[in-house]
């Protein structure tokens, strides 16, 4: 009886251990890919059209989803904010609430989550498929380094696109909030903007938001690239990798957001 229990526990522990080792191994492999991508990124700047093409597929193609979501998020924020603020008689502060929520948190975070779902999955699936159909092998046999030719341009495209998308998200969100607050609810327009301007700091809020989105850009793109590279060369392998991209990116973004926010609030 006791033997069986000990057996089960030891099997459980060794299972956990194996998983941990696999995770750590993947973390290391991901970090290696990241460093290689940086080392071999000369090509993606020398032949910038390679990167431009990827900016088109990751950034431009995500524009619509970002703008539409931002608009709705901004409008909902204004509705909810007004509902609470008017109880305290400070409904003019609605502009501040909408702007700070967007610029500090929702802009970078929601953009990164949408990016992981829209562009990240596309990157993973594309690279996984290139691996499955031996395109990466073929490239290597032609003496073309897939990290320089495939990984680096996509990496830089993601890092460049993310802050642009996040800035658009915040701006469109503020406009959505304005539309609800001023014409719809009837908050004073002057108070809406002036309170906002008095309380949103360029360095502490806007620049920090941009820093966040750059970090998220690095994380999301790198995760998507690594999962594609690491995918087993089968249809099933690629589909699992795509799912993992979304799950891991989302968790990483939320975790990083906490860490970054605590740093930014302390410093």
């Amino acid at each position: 009886m006791i033997n069986i229990i000990i057996n089960k526990i030891s099997r459980l522990l060794s299972g956990i251990g194996h998983r941990m080792i696999a995770r750590i191994w993947r973390l290391g492999a991901g970090a290696r890919l990241f460093i290689l991508a940086i080392i071999y990124s000369g090509e993606s700047f020398k032949r910038f059209h390679l990167t431009l093409r990827e900016i088109y597929f990751t950034g431009v193609m995500s524009l619509l989803i970002i703008i539409v979501s931002a608009f709705f998020v901004g409008m909902v924020l204004a509705l909810q904010g007004y509902n609470t603020l008017q109880k305290y008689g400070s409904s003019e502060a609605i502009g501040v609430l909408v702007a700070l929520a967007l610029v500090r948190e929702l802009g970078p975070v929601v953009t990164a989550l949408l990016f992981a779902g829209r562009a990240g999955t596309a990157i993973t699936a594309e690279i996984g498929l290139m691996k499955t159909t031996e395109q990466l092998s073929a490239m290597e046999m032609m003496a073309v380094n897939p990290i320089a030719r495939v990984v680096a341009p996509r990496f830089w495209a993601g890092v460049i696109s993310m802050p642009i998308l996040a800035a658009l998200f915040s701006m469109v969100g503020v406009l959505g909030g304005y539309l609800v607050a001023v014409p719809l609810i009837g908050v004073d327009e002057g108070a809406f903007w002036s309170q906002m301007q008095a309380n949103v700091d360029v360095r502490a809020d806007i620049i920090n938001g941009v820093i966040k989105s750059v970090v998220f850009g690095v994380a999301c793109t790198m995760i998507a690239l690594f999962e594609g590279f690491d995918a087993p060369p089968t249809a099933e392998g690629v589909s699992h990798a795509t799912t993992r991209t979304v799950v891991i990116s989302s968790l990483t973004v939320l975790g990083l957001d906490f860490v970054l926010t605590s740093f930014m609030l302390v410093v």
């Binding site: 610029v103 642009i164 800035a167 503020v174 301007q197 949103v200 806007i206």
Partner: peptide
């Protein structure tokens, strides 16, 4: 434009 808008219209630049 969005970044500029944020800095000028939303922020205290």
């Amino acid at each position: 434009a969005a970044l500029l808008g944020l800095a000028m219209k939303v922020g205290n630049l």
